[in-house]
Design a protein around this nucleic acid. Sequence first.
DNA 1: TTTGTTATTGGACAAGCGTACAATAAGGAA
DNA 2: TTCCTTATTGTACGCTTGTCCAATAACAAA
Lengths: 213, 213
Amino acid sequence: MAAAEPRFTRDAPEIRKRKLIKATAQCLAELGHAGTSVRAVAARANVSPGLVAHHFKGIDDLIVATYGHVGARVAEALTQAIEGAADGPESKLRAFIEASFKPPVLDRDLLAIWLSFWSLVRRDPGVRKVHKKVYADYRQRLEQLIADIARTRCFGIDAHLAALGFTAMLDGLWLELCLDPTTFSREDALRIAHAWIDDLVAGGFRALTVRRR
Amino acid sequence: MAAAEPRFTRDAPEIRKRKLIKATAQCLAELGHAGTSVRAVAARANVSPGLVAHHFKGIDDLIVATYGHVGARVAEALTQAIEGAADGPESKLRAFIEASFKPPVLDRDLLAIWLSFWSLVRRDPGVRKVHKKVYADYRQRLEQLIADIARTRCFGIDAHLAALGFTAMLDGLWLELCLDPTTFSREDALRIAHAWIDDLVAGGFRALTVRRR
DNA sequence: TTTGTTATTGGACAAGCGTACAATAAGGAA
DNA sequence: TTCCTTATTGTACGCTTGTCCAATAACAAA
């Protein structure tokens, strides 16, 4: 008699968690926050509802984990763009922009995850902390590049404020482009962002040269 | 014998809808998208669940109506800021900025409504249409002011692209400030936005002078 | 006062939700 | 092979959800 087919397969917790995270990402993309429940995720991962509770505290915990996972992938993509660019802070900053407006960063599915995560920020202090760190890291990289450009070109600027404004603009363009890609294009976003750097390099934003505080 | 107290009061549909919209805004602010249900809204409005169905198609319809209502109030606040400012496009643009970073525009509760609305954009074509129009109007006003500044100062710029970038920056700053007011301040946002205008006025963003299309 | 319109109620209904928990079995260790 | 750990199942529970609909009554009009 042939060996009976195993009714299920055991996974190491780490592996199973990653599968559940992937299922959660799919749910958020296809069904939105409202349609993403413990049961919906379990069904999509071909797993019983109870298993989700065994690995995560609840659906919010799962969403945070999903944000952490895809957030790391995004950060990695941006890091690779910077490291793969030619030497010099300006080249690296421009490479950063290029990477920001193409997959896997520019991705409708990503926005669904971000929206869910943002909606958790207000009520959950733990989530708020994660968000704060992610954004601080994100801005820190840009601030460093901007400061390097200023030093190289020998002009003064408050790199902190400049980075704040630049990330806000990138975020805004990214958000709008994910929400509705028909109003303007990837190429428009790229031109706008590159023009900002052109201006920075040309000594623009002189009003930001006084260090705040 | 005293007249019996009426068990409930009748409202004109328009009045009742506004009350339900107000209750929805409170729900979104306090409970988030996940906690905002037909029943939660009904309870908050001291009304039976059935009444909500009588006035709105469902919770999504109610959220869209809420977005429309508060969106109109925001647009009105910005319009008043522009009209109350001194003559000249630059003054008006700066007044627009000032209004963007104080209540009722800069308001945590507003973000909760926006997040819910954004999450509906993807799946509901009607919502997508509303979003598109709101943003088009919003940008159109800034584009006009920017074009006026360029004409007054006799320099060329693609006002459309410039407005796209500027609104993205304002949106990004607004979003981050609502999500986490501790990383940077209202005043930082104002300095950044004003610096962008300083730069525009000084003839910055020359890379955007070629008209697209 | 009487009448008519309809905003409003309140309960019933099925479906879906998160959670808990005892039973099961997969797969490595010994 | 046998044993042990624990990932996984499946189900049952109580709660909330959206929707439906007949009954009710507030209020304007006549």
